[in-house]
Write a protein that binds this DNA or RNA. Structure first.
Lengths: 245, 245
DNA sequence: AAGCGAGAAGAACACTGTTCACAGATTGAT
DNA sequence: ATCAATCTGTGAACAGTGTTCTTCTCGCTT
């Protein structure tokens, strides 16, 4: 898409008002895009305004024309990551699976970009761009017959779990990089298993279960625990009014 | 405790081996302590090695004799915050309440220091100092009759919720400082309620429930959801072997 | 009393986010 | 077609940051 800029405009072609701008104009979108490139290549710690500017072949200060803050840039990245989520029409029959899909999809999106989970924990809770998604999520939960006060909390609970789990997950990979997961796993398992059994009987006993399973499995089980808890608030939305005081 | 250092040693008193050291020696503990002072006064963004050093009246480089990294310092702060937790003897009768108390206590500790939740999300998942607590937590969960594979995940789930909730909670207070909570609340509620009802029926309907309640209530409800989910894996630990595939 | 070794000091390096006055090109109007 | 105005990108600068290096000084042991 950049090579056609180099081709001189043929004389019989009416040149556009803005005749073939040698530099594609800087936009928020292009900045966000470049930020993702830097993030994936160098990681969050190296994601600086200067690096992003260098990626675009542009001066640092140029970025500040389009973006107020580094914070705003991070926010834009987060928003773009969840730009195109499409939540299904609420279905009372399969609401539990719909909820789980929401969380699964969120995790996958965060895993798409390196260190993205760390950025996600920094974002301001509610942003206008994300409102439609929250709206849909609430629709699903209400369709499932959950009491409103549970629904109002469930959104927070789910996204907190999703982001928190993914953060921890990607932190492991980060702290012990240049090792495959199986290597990390067995190393950790050995560590737990080698603890003095008299002082740490439970840790020793659960050593294999803590690291033996895949992240997918662990995420799925945690998700199931939450959804079961939600479901326990049942379809009959009045009988439990006084249980959580 | 510092004024007796200024009093000259009386001649008839045998001076100690180290005679009245004008400077109390720098230790890890003192550095951590100073870091907490800076954190509480200036917040996480201003918590720099230089500020900590200034708080102690000491050069920056002196800190690095006792502390490898800023990362290590943060880790030490996190550890000290949970130093003196005492989890109760596992009791099969009240395990649910014991679990809840664990999470409640954790939240309170994080709230004790400004921005502490932000630091907590940065810590490495398992550290030797925290092993005894995990051990006890597992004991409680197993005493409650939970299957081992659920127990192995529950620890993560609980601390993720606790830390994530507290982070979000303290982020609100931070973003809209110089406003009391009731002001923030009503402002937010107005915002949600003012959304176009045709596009956001659920958000409008739940507006008051989302912000009307206190953080304590919301935390408690989320906790209840999780504990219910855990409890649903029941005391009969074999019947649900194939439910979460 | 001399010497040794640990701990603190100060300066330096290579970064960071952000702002400023200035130049350059692109636009609209004359 | 020329001029003015507007905006966008530039380069330099400021005030910080984490970390390391060499120097120096102090307290303790021999």
């Amino acid at each position: 898409m950049s090579q056609q800029d180099d081709v001189p405009t043929a004389p019989w072609e009416r040149p556009r008002k803005r005749q073939a701008p040698a530099r594609i104009p800087l936009t928020r979108e292009r900045i966000v895009e470049a930020a993702f490139v830097v993030l994936d290549r160098d990681g969050y710690d190296k994601l600086s305004m200067r690096q992003v500017a260098a990626e675009l072949g542009v001066a640092v200060s140029a970025l500040y024309v389009h973006v107020d803050d580094k914070d705003e840039l991070l926010q834009l990245m987060y928003n773009r990551l969840f730009d195109d989520v499409e939540l299904p029409e609420p279905d009372p029959e399969t609401w539990q699976e719909q909820i789980k899909d929401f969380a699964r999809d969120g995790r996958q999106r965060l895993l798409r970009h390196r260190d993205m989970a760390r950025i996600s924990m920094q974002h301001v809770p509610f942003t206008a761009e994300l409102l439609p998604h929250v709206e849909r999520l609430f629709g699903i939960l209400r369709a499932g017959g959950l009491p409103d006060r549970v629904t109002a909390i469930a959104g927070d609970l789910l996204s907190t779990y999703m982001e928190g789990f993914t953060l921890e997950e990607s932190m492991w990979q980060d702290r012990m990089k240049d090792s495959s997961w199986t290597v990390i796993g067995s190393r950790l398992e050995n560590y737990f298993a080698s603890l003095p059994p008299d002082r740490f009987p439970n840790l020793v006993a659960l050593a294999d279960l803590m690291v033996g399973e895949t992240n997918d499995y662990r995420f799925e089980l945690g998700l199931d625990i939450i959804v079961r808890g939600l479901a326990s608030y049942g379809t009959h939305s009045d009988s439990d009014q006084d249980e959580a005081s």
